[in-house]
Nucleic acid binder design. Structure first.
Lengths: 141, 141
DNA sequence: ATAAACCTGACTAAAATAGTCAAGTATCTT
DNA sequence: AAGATACTTGACTATTTTAGTCAGGTTTAT
């Protein structure tokens, strides 16, 4: 089990953006250069972030992206959700009525994975973009 | 990001095994039938569990597998480790000296993923096979 | 002897991942 | 009006991972 880059890139890009957000729209080109993420890939990611109203786009020269809410109000959950990177521990979930694994009852470990999912999502719910930016400033000093 | 079946199956199979463990070696055939997991796949999984000394094998007729330690002493961490399903949040870890993403410094979110990994592994460290068996007995009543 | 069970390694179809590529459209600056 | 910058969209693709299957063993109780 591993976290995919799309999710990591999304968070990295937003932390980068959040640091310059107050001043000007931030272009993907700048983020691409600073963070070493392919421009094309960033575009894919930001398209989703925009559709989920996490960022706003400003077209034209000097354009770029701006946060759509305060950094404090953007939680990791929102970001990962937007790029379809939420944690899914069980497949059987969608077919709850049928039970797991084609059996009429829940599988022996169903509750376990449910608990795990909650555990992880708690972590994501608590962390905001602001926390991450602050974290970086702290380390810099 | 999703948990893969191999890890889930390994845990399911061991919970099943743990319930009959005291009496006799449990054959993979039985686990396969009870849990609806392909026999061939189970063999692959148990080969790893054996190499990691989580189970012992008993060959020949009436053979099967037996836990190698008390259920209380087998943690989820051990199981997932054995089948190579530990959580890996960052790739850059192996190249720590070089920093992340080919850059000379850690990426903006490095600490975050580290924290997450710890958070998840804490969960796995706490849960033992015994806990899971008990959980199932509780629900049965 | 034979059947039950473990053991091993190679193989493979399907899905997910991590992008790339191409062809736009909108807006600012001059 | 022209050009440059930057967003926008959708299709495409190579690679890797996943989730197994398959074939051919070996060991041991009866």
């Amino acid at each position: 089990m591993k976290l995919s880059s799309k999710g990591r890139y999304a968070v990295m890009a937003l932390v980068d953006l959040a640091r310059f957000n107050e001043i000007n729209p931030v272009s993907l080109r700048d983020i691409s250069l600073r963070q070493g993420i392919s421009l094309d890939y960033l575009e894919q990611i930001f398209s989703k972030l925009r559709k989920n109203e996490i960022v706003q786009s400003v077209r034209g020269t000097q354009g770029g992206y701006v946060l759509n809410k305060k950094a404090r109000e953007i939680k990791l959950t929102n970001i990962l959700d937007a790029v379809d990177e939420k944690v899914k521990t069980v497949q059987c979930k969608k077919e709850l009525k049928k039970g797991c694994n084609g059996k009429p009852t829940k599988c022996l470990t169903h509750n376990l994975w449910d608990e795990l999912e909650t555990h992880i999502n708690n972590f994501f719910d608590k962390k905001s973009l602001e926390d991450l930016v602050q974290d970086n400033l702290d380390r810099r000093v």
